[in-house]
Structure formats: structure tokens, C-alpha cells
């Protein structure tokens, strides 16, 4: 996706998830799909004991290939992917485990590290905290879609130039986050950048270099 045509809905970032869920169409579909599966999101004891009855040996036979999965189409980096998914699949696991877009990383699976940051309709979200099924029809951009073909995004170039990483595991999330940060207009001072990038952890401690990279990319893109 081209950076400039991502819609920006300023001021409502924090309600992102809610807004997406409250999209009636999606919500209805989501509920229907979940309710129609044997492995519901909230698994109660009754369901479990029903399943219990068939247990015979230590080695269970592999179940029929995902009878409880649902088909959906996800639009990622401008391309449509149609995939059968367990409705419990997070967007992150759909990307990494099913679509082999492994650029988005899993660091915590709980919205605590930012390694899984992707852009959904131009806004940064933690893809581990949202289910894939909630994103049909959304424009999803992952690290694989940040560059323009072979031409790196200025943020990517700046990360290389300023050594904005060591192990590189947090990096795709940092870059997606930083790209969104510039659009949010939250890169107006060092402290503002530090504050608005604090959801992306880097255990290697590349923060000062990421700060320099963001400032550099900002000058280059304005």
C-alpha cells in the first residue's frame, strides 16, 4: 500500500479495536462464525466433557482437517489472500503461521511488546490482540509491504543508517510503528517520539538509534 493513501482518523487511535468490532457487518459475521464452531472462544466445561467421550488412547487420531475453520479473505499489502482459519486465529498467527508472512514478529502474544505491530487501514495495531476474522475488507500493511517494491521506505533506510536494531527481532514492529507515528504527527520532539514509541520494546536497547532514525526519516519525508 502506498503510504499516502492510508486513511487517517485522527484522535481516535485508542478506540481502534472497538471501532473495528462495532462495524456491524463484521461484528455480526464474527459472532456467527464463532458460534458455529465446536471450539468456541469461551470454552466451557460442558463442551469439554462432550469431547471427552471419544477418548480411547494416548494417541488421538488427527482430526478431520479443520472442520471448524472458516474461509476468509484478507487484503495484505494490496494482495488478497483467501484462507481457511480457525476463528480463534489472531491476525498475527494468520500472517505468520498460515500466510508465511513472517516479517511480523511474536514477542508476547499479549499486546505487551509491539513486535507484532502492523498497519490496519493506516493505523498501527498489535496484530496479536486482534482476530484475523475481524479484518476482512481491511487494508492490512505488514513490514513486507512497507517498501515500494525494491525501493526501501525512508524509515527502513534510516533504520539501517542509524543502526536502529541489533538482533532485529523487534525491528519490523518498530518500523511499522514509526511509519504510523509520523502520520499521527507525534514525532515533534525527542520526548514525544520516546513517549509514542514506548509500546515497542527493544531488549537490545536500540532506542537512541531508533530515535535518530525516526528524526532522520521525518526530515526526509517532509
Amino acid at each position: 500500500m502506498n503510504e499516502s493513501d492510508a486513511p487517517v482518523d485522527s484522535g481516535l487511535e485508542e478506540f481502534d479495536e472497538l471501532l473495528i468490532l462495532s462495524n456491524l457487518e463484521t461484528r455480526r459475521k464474527f459472532i456467527k462464525q464463532v458460534a458455529g464452531t465446536s471450539a468456541a472462544i469461551t470454552i466451557g466445561p460442558a463442551l469439554l466433557s462432550a469431547a471427552d467421550a471419544t477418548a480411547t488412547s494416548q494417541i488421538a487420531s488427527p482430526s478431520k482437517s479443520n472442520s471448524d475453520s472458516i474461509s476468509m479473505t484478507l487484503k495484505i499489502n494490496g494482495k488478497d489472500y483467501t484462507v481457511d482459519l480457525d476463528p480463534r486465529t489472531t491476525l498475527l498467527d494468520a500472517l505468520r503461521e498460515r500466510l508465511h508472512l513472517t516479517g511480523s514478529k511474536k514477542g508476547c502474544d499479549h499486546g505487551q511488546c509491539g513486535a507484532c505491530t502492523v498497519l490496519v487501514n493506516g493505523r498501527r495495531i498489535n496484530s496479536c490482540l486482534t482476530l484475523a476474522v475481524m479484518h476482512e475488507g481491511d487494508e492490512i500493511t505488514t513490514i513486507e509491504g512497507i517498501a515500494n517494491g525494491d525501493e526501501l521506505h525512508p524509515m527502513q533506510t534510516a533504520f539501517i543508517e542509524h543502526d536502529g536494531f541489533q538482533c532485529g527481532y523487534c525491528t519490523p514492529g518498530q518500523i511499522c510503528s514509526a511509519v504510523a507515528l509520523l502520520k499521527e504527527n507525534h514525532a515533534n520532539s525527542d520526548d514525544e517520539i520516546r513517549e509514542f514509541m514506548s509500546g515497542n520494546l527493544c531488549r537490545c536497547g536500540a532506542y537512541p538509534n531508533i530515535l535518530a532514525a525516526i528524526k532522520d526519516a521525518k526530515t526526509k519525508s517532509t
Binding site: R96, H100, L101, T102, G103, S104, K105, K106, T142, I143, E144, I146, A147, L152, Q156, F159, I160, E161, D163, F165, G168, Y169, T171, P172, I175
Partner: peptide, 21 residues
């Protein structure tokens, strides 16, 4: 010098152990 593996890391193409299909 900048890292020779830098590009792989910024485009999400550096393969970590959980990412081999």
C-alpha cells in the same frame, strides 16, 4: 559500516528459527 544483514532485517526477511515453513 552499516550491517550487511541490515536490509534483511528492515524488510522482514531475516528468518528467525520459528519462521521456517
Amino acid at each position: 559500516l552499516t550491517r550487511v544483514d541490515g536490509k534483511l532485517k528492515v524488510i522482514g526477511a531475516a528468518k528467525f528459527s520459528a519462521e521456517f515453513d
